[in-house]
């Protein structure tokens, strides 16, 4: 999976540079997130602006990251959802679980006190 990781202070910005987040590559994302948690990174923004399609496995990988961040008193926020991807969160009611921002800049700014 092609992802870009940028650390900005104690926040990690993870940009998924894939058109699809599905059962083929979601395990890879989950593993990369777990590796960041093991390194002590607990505050994350996942930028999905390049992702046009997400399936239940992709949602599962994001839920896994969300649960791990919360368990470590951190938070995982989402940014840049395309309309059809946003509709997947609404269909599964996960839009009530995640904090979702229009852009990664907005999500990063939300961590500021």
């Amino acid at each position: 999976m092609n992802i870009q990781i940028n650390e900005q202070g104690n926040i990690v910005l993870i940009s998924v540079v894939e058109e699809r987040l599905d059962a083929h590559n979601s395990t890879d994302l989950k593993t990369r997130l777990l590796s960041l948690f093991e390194d002590g990174k607990n505050n994350m923004v996942i930028n999905l602006e390049e992702v046009r399609f997400v399936d239940s496995s992709g949602l599962g990988a994001l839920v896994s990251g969300f649960k791990n961040a919360s368990a470590r008193n951190g938070s995982l926020k989402l940014a840049g959802l395309q309309p059809q991807v946003q509709s997947m969160f609404e269909l599964t009611r996960l839009h009530r679980v995640f904090e979702i921002f229009p852009t990664s800049e907005d999500a990063l700014a939300s961590f500021q006190p």
């Binding site: 399936d55 239940s56 599962g60 839920v63 969300f66 269909l91 599964t92 996960l94 679980v97």
Partner: peptide, 19 residues
């Protein structure tokens, strides 16, 4: 059907198809 409050990582596929 998946329970949003339980935050399961799996089990949404068939629910999505049925929806």
């Amino acid at each position: 059907p998946p329970d949003a409050s339980c935050l399961q990582e799996h089990g949404r596929g068939i629910f999505i198809i049925q929806t």
